[in-house]
Design a protein around this nucleic acid. Structure first.
Lengths: 337, 337
DNA sequence: AAGATATCCTTAAACGATTTCGCGCTTTTG
DNA sequence: CAAAAGCGCGAAATCGTTTAAGGATATCTT
C-alpha cells in the first residue's frame, strides 16, 4: 500500500508536508503542493480512513440502526426507501454508513457501545422498538443522533406527517360524500396513536360521529388481519361506506375479502391505504392512499445528522416534519347526490 | 474514553499486559488476567475498532456493493431480503457491514479504492451492473469477494437456481396439461439469459414447440410492460393457455390486463410469477411462483466471504447454487382431460 | 551449585495519518 | 542596517492498540 511516507521519500519532503499538501493547508508552497499531488496520483496513493480516524477521532462514518420489531425489517418498502436515500445523501456528504447491531460476533455489546466501538460520528435510528432501553441509551448519549418517527427530548427527529396524512384521507372521503368511515389501524405504536387521534379529531371537526365498532385493530403489513377486520366490518348491519387500511400492503387482505364477497371497489365499497408504495399505484383500480415521502425523510435525516456532526455548536435539535401527498386513486366513489 | 492505558495504570501493569490479558494470550498469569478483566469491566472499557484496525490491517468490516441499475435498488424485496440476511449472518460472525459507493463526498474514487480506503476485509457484490469496469476491477482485485448471481473466474459466487426455477415452473405447467406456454422475460442480463435457455431447453425436452411469438421481452419489476406484453399475447389468434411472468411484481400488470378483458385467472388463463415475494402469497388467487431463497443466499454469501477472509489458504473459490422452491398457488388450472 | 527451563511481565516499535510549535530563510519596514 | 514580519517546511508527539524480543524471577535438573 502506498502511504504518505512513500510519497514523502519520493518527493524529498517530510511526511508533515505531504499531509498538509494533500489536505490543502496554506503553509505549503504552490510548487510543492503541485508536485506532491502529482506524485500521489502517480503512485496511486489512497488515504487510509482507519489511520485518519484514529488520529482525528472522526470516522466519517454514520451508524444506522434498523431493527424492525415486526420482523419485516428492510423488506418494507417504506424503510428500504428511507435507507436508500439515507445512503445516497450520506455518500454525497462524504459519509459511509454502517449498520449498528447488538452483539458483534462473540462480543456482547449494546447499540451505544457498538457505535462507540466503531467510532461512528453520528447515528440514525429508524424502525426500532423505541421502548428498548438500549435504544434509549443510545439516543440519550453524547453521540449525535437523528431518530425517525420518534421524538426524544432535545434530539433531532424526522417525522412523517401522520396527522396530516390521515386528516387528508378523511377529508377526501368526506368530500366524496362519505360519512360512514371505518378505520382499520396497525399495532399500538406512537405512529398509530397519532393516526388514531388524527382520525378521531378530523371526523369530529367534520361533524362525523364514528361508532366505536368502525375502528378495528389489526397489524401493519399484515393482509390477513386486515382481511378479518374487513369481514367484521362487512358483517355489520350499519355497514361503513368506506374503509381506511393500516397500509397499502395490508389492504390486499381487504381487497381479497371484498372480492370474495362479490363487493366491488369502489362501487360497493370505497377504500384507501397508507404509504403510497409502488404496489398501490400499479393495482387496478389504482389505490387511493397517502404517500409518505420516504425518500425525503432519508435525505433530511442524513443532512441534519451531518449538520449536527459538523456544526455541533450551532445546529439546533429540531423536529422536521416531512409531509406526504394524497394520491387520489380510483378506489373512492363519489357518493354525493 | 477508557483506554488500555487507563486500565494498565489502574492495575499497575503495562499496556502490553492488558492487551494480552483481554485477548486471551497465554503468557499472562491467571490472577492478572482476572484482575484486568474485572477492572476493564468496572471502568467500562471498550476496544477501539479503529486503533485495532490500524495495527492489525483488518477491520472486521465487510463492504457491500448494492447499486441496482434498474433503480429500484433496495426496494426490491429480493434484494432487501438478501441484504437483511447478509447483515444478520455477518453480525453473527463478528463483522459489521458498510456500503461501498463510488465517490465519497468530494473524494472521487472507484469501488475498489473505496473498499481499500475503508480497509474492508472483504466485499459482497450484489445487484450491480456487472459490465461496469469499476465492478470488474473490484471483483478481480486481491480483496476477497463474493458475488451474487454472477460468476467470475476463480472467485466465489452465490447463485440463485434460475435454471431449476424456470424448469420447475414449466414442468408444472406441463403436468397441469398446458402445452401452449408463453414467457414474458426481463431485460437482457445473465440471469435472463439463463432463464430463457432453461425455458427453451425444458420445453424442448418435453416435446413442446414454442412459437417465437410466445416469448415476449419486458422488464423486471415493471407491471406496465408486462401488461402490454400480456395484451399482445391475448391478441394472438393462437393464444397461449398460460403465461410465465418476469417476476411476481410485474405480474400485477398482467393481472390488470386480464381483468380488464374479463379473462379470469385461472379459469381462462393460467399464470405464474417468479421470486415468491410476500405479495405473491397474499394475492387471491394465490400466485403460482418459484420462490428464490434470498435469505439463504445472503446467509451463504456472508458465511463464504468470512471463510475466504479467515482461511485464505484453504478456502476454495466456489459457486454455490441456492435452490428455491416451487410454490403451487391457485393460478394454474389443471386442463388435463 | 550452576545451568536450563518455565512463567510472567515489560520495553519499545509499529500501524498511517495529523498537528503544534518552531526554525531558518527571505522580504519588508522604520 | 537592524529588527520585524512572512513564508515554507520539518521534528516530534500523538491517536489506541498489538506484538516481537527480551528481562526478571522462580523452579527444575543433574
Amino acid at each position: 500500500m502506498v502511504t504518505i511516507k512513500d510519497i514523502s521519500e519520493r518527493c524529498g519532503v517530510s511526511r508533515a508536508t505531504v499531509s498538509k499538501a494533500l489536505n490543502g493547508h496554506t503553509d505549503i508552497g504552490a510548487d510543492t503542493i503541485a508536485q506532491i499531488r502529482r506524485v500521489a496520483k502517480e503512485m496511486g496513493y489512497l488515504p487510509n480512513a482507519t489511520a485518519r480516524g484514529l488520529k482525528l477521532g472522526r470516522s466519517h462514518n454514520i451508524g444506522v440502526l434498523f431493527v424492525d420489531k415486526t420482523a419485516c425489517g428492510l423488506t418494507h418498502e417504506y424503510f428500504s426507501s428511507i435507507l436508500d436515500s439515507l445512503k445516497v445523501e450520506s455518500e454525497r456528504l462524504g459519509y459511509d454508513i454502517t449498520f449498528i447491531s447488538k452483539d458483534i460476533g462473540e462480543f456482547k455489546m449494546d447499540y451505544y457501545e457498538h457505535a462507540k466501538y466503531r467510532n461512528c460520528d453520528g447515528v440514525i435510528i429508524a424502525s426500532v422498538d423505541f421502548s428498548d432501553p438500549a435504544v434509549l441509551k443510545l439516543i440519550a448519549s453524547e453521540i449525535p443522533t437523528v431518530s425517525l418517527d420518534f421524538v426524544y427530548d432535545n434530539r433531532t427527529s424526522v417525522l412523517s406527517d401522520n396527522i396530516g396524512g390521515v386528516s387528508a384521507l378523511v377529508h377526501y372521503f368526506y368530500e366524496m360524500g362519505h360519512r360512514k368511515i371505518a378505520f382499520i389501524h396497525g399495532e399500538d405504536t406512537s405512529v398509530t396513536q397519532k393516526r388514531l387521534i388524527s382520525f378521531n379529531k378530523t371526523c369530529a371537526s367534520l361533524g362525523i360521529k364514528v361508532p366505536e365498532y368502525y375502528i378495528k385493530p389489526a397489524l401493519y403489513h399484515d393482509p390477513k388481519l386486515s382481511g378479518l377486520a374487513t369481514r367484521e366490518l362487512l358483517a355489520l348491519s350499519d355497514r361503513p361506506t368506506c374503509i381506511l387500511y393500516p397500509d397499502d400492503f395490508s389492504f390486499i387482505g381487504g381487497m381479497n375479502e371484498l372480492e370474495r364477497q362479490g363487493i366491488s371497489i369502489p362501487e360497493d365499497m370505497s377504500v384507501a391505504g397508507y404509504d403510497g408504495i409502488l404496489l398501490s399505484q400499479v393495482l387496478r383500480p389504482r389505490l387511493t392512499t397517502y404517500h409518505q415521502d420516504a425518500e425525503a425523510m432519508g435525505r433530511e435525516a442524513a443532512a441534519k445528522l451531518v449538520e449536527l456532526i459538523e456544526q455541533p455548536k450551532t445546529a439546533l435539535p429540531q423536529q422536521i416534519m416531512v409531509s406526504g401527498q394524497l394520491l387520489k386513486g380510483d378506489t373512492v366513489k363519489d357518493i354525493n347526490d
